Amino acid sequence: MTAYVALLRAVNVGGTGKLPMTALAELCLSAGFVQVKTYIASGNVVFRSDGSEEEVRTALERRLTAHMGRPASVLVRAASEMAQTLARNPFPQQPANRVMALFFDGAPPSDPLEGATGVQGEEVRLGQRELFIFYPDGMAKTRLRLPAEKTGSARNMNTVAKLAAMAAAIA
């Protein structure tokens, strides 16, 4: 079995009428995943499965879509790839809460700043299936908008580190 991290994209997991983390865990269990553990109320879950990355993504997206009544998108990483993402962080000396990994299903855009607006000193670096973004003034104050944000899902490096550790613990 492989340990995976699933990152929900554009799904509000808190509040009334949304997707609580307990429901997310139940959907994972119904898909046959084991050792399911969620992390903070922002759509992060780790688990083990015999399925491939694509099979895991498809199974979870189908269950989320049926549960929510609208299409849902999930990005999936094996535990080893999440650890590699953490290790590839090109901004290791910066505060982890000001560095984001913007995850994609495939390769990131070769020129992530093409079509960007509101650039005010943020730094963007290419990863393998992610972009790394350093927000010197924090995300709350940024005006940066990247076209790639429409298809990716971002997590700060504190969250990436925690998810990598959680996935490694069940691998």
Rank of each mutant, 00 (worst) to 15 (best):
168 A>R: 15
135 Y>Q: 09
70 R>W: 05
138 G>I: 05
118 G>N: 05
135 Y>A: 10
87 A>N: 09
44 N>E: 04
84 Q>Y: 10
77 R>D: 00
107 A>E: 07
124 V>T: 07
95 P>N: 07
24 L>K: 08
114 E>Y: 12
110 S>P: 10
149 E>C: 02
127 G>S: 09
11 V>C: 00
78 A>G: 10
123 E>G: 00
141 K>A: 14
44 N>G: 06
86 L>H: 12
140 A>R: 13
49 S>F: 11
42 S>H: 15
98 R>Y: 11
36 V>K: 05
132 F>E: 00
14 G>H: 12
96 A>I: 08
103 F>H: 08
67 H>P: 01
155 R>I: 02
75 L>M: 06
55 E>S: 10
91 F>E: 01
59 A>M: 08
30 S>C: 02
132 F>K: 05
47 F>A: 10
61 E>L: 09
85 T>W: 12
103 F>R: 00
54 E>W: 13
74 V>L: 02
143 R>A: 13
159 T>A: 02
100 M>H: 15
57 R>G: 02
100 M>F: 15
155 R>Y: 05
10 A>M: 09
159 T>I: 07
116 A>H: 10
46 V>N: 03
48 R>L: 02
163 L>R: 08
145 R>I: 03
45 V>H: 01
94 Q>P: 00
24 L>Y: 12
170 I>S: 04
37 K>W: 12
151 T>G: 01
68 M>Y: 11
83 A>D: 03
23 A>E: 10
11 V>P: 01
40 I>F: 06
154 A>Q: 03
34 V>P: 02
142 T>E: 03
5 V>W: 15
13 V>G: 11
80 S>K: 07
120 Q>E: 08
67 H>Q: 12
105 D>R: 14
18 K>V: 10
38 T>P: 01
3 A>P: 03
35 Q>H: 15
166 M>Q: 13
25 A>N: 07
160 V>I: 13
63 R>H: 08
25 A>R: 15
60 L>C: 09
